[in-house]
Simulated scan of single mutants.
Amino acid sequence: MRFAAIADIHGNAAALKAVLADIAAQGIAPKNTVNLGDCFSGPLEATRVAVLLQSLDLFTVRGNHDRYLIEQRLEEMGPSDAHAFRQLSLEDLAWLKSLPFDAVFQNVAYLCHATPQDDNCYWLETVTPKGHVVLRGQAEIEAWAEGIEQSLILCGHSHLPRVLALSDGRMIVNPGSVGCPAYDDDLQVPHRVEAGTPLASYAICEQIDNGWVVNFRLIPYDHMSQSRLAMMNGRASWAAALATGRLA
Rank of each mutant, 00 (worst) to 15 (best):
F3Q: 15
F3V: 15
A4M: 13
A5L: 13
A5T: 14
I6S: 06
A7D: 12
A7F: 13
A7T: 02
D8P: 14
I9V: 15
I9P: 12
G11D: 01
G11E: 02
A13N: 02
A14W: 09
A14E: 15
A15C: 11
A15I: 08
A15F: 07
A18Y: 09
L20A: 10
A21W: 01
A24E: 12
A25K: 14
G27K: 04
A29Q: 05
P30S: 06
L36T: 12
G37C: 06
D38E: 04
C39P: 01
C39F: 03
C39E: 03
T47Y: 09
R48A: 15
V51W: 04
D57R: 14
D57V: 08
L58I: 09
V61N: 10
R62G: 05
N64G: 01
D66H: 02
D66N: 07
R67N: 07
L69W: 04
L69R: 08
Q72C: 11
R73W: 12
R73N: 15
E75F: 09
E76H: 07
E76K: 13
M77K: 11
P79I: 05
P79Q: 10
P79E: 06
S80C: 07
S80Y: 06
S80A: 15
S80D: 09
A82K: 13
A82W: 01
H83T: 03
R86M: 15
R86Q: 15
Q87F: 07
Q87R: 05
L88V: 11
S89K: 10
D92R: 05
L93V: 04
L93P: 02
A94N: 14
W95L: 02
L96N: 07
L96F: 10
S98V: 09
P100Y: 08
V104G: 03
F105Y: 11
Y110F: 05
Y110V: 00
Y110S: 03
L111G: 05
A114T: 02
T115V: 00
D118V: 06
N120E: 05
L124Q: 07
T128V: 04
T128W: 03
K130I: 01
K130Y: 07
K130P: 01
L135S: 06
R136Q: 07
Q138A: 14
Q138N: 08
A139V: 14
I141D: 02
A145E: 01
I148V: 07
E149H: 11
E149D: 12
I153Y: 00
L154V: 12
C155Y: 05
H157C: 06
S158F: 11
L160H: 00
P161R: 00
L166K: 05
S167E: 09
M171P: 01
G176W: 01
S177F: 14
G179T: 01
C180V: 03
D185Y: 01
L187N: 06
L187C: 05
Q188L: 03
A195N: 12
G196I: 07
L199I: 10
L199M: 10
S201T: 02
Y202I: 01
Y202W: 15
Y202H: 08
I204Y: 04
I204R: 01
E206V: 10
D209H: 04
N210W: 09
N210H: 11
N210Q: 08
V213R: 14
V213D: 15
V214H: 10
L218N: 00
I219C: 15
I219A: 12
P220G: 11
S227R: 14
R228L: 15
R228Y: 08
L229I: 11
M231G: 07
M231I: 09
M232D: 12
M232W: 03
N233D: 12
R235H: 12
S237P: 00
A240G: 13
T244P: 02
A248W: 10
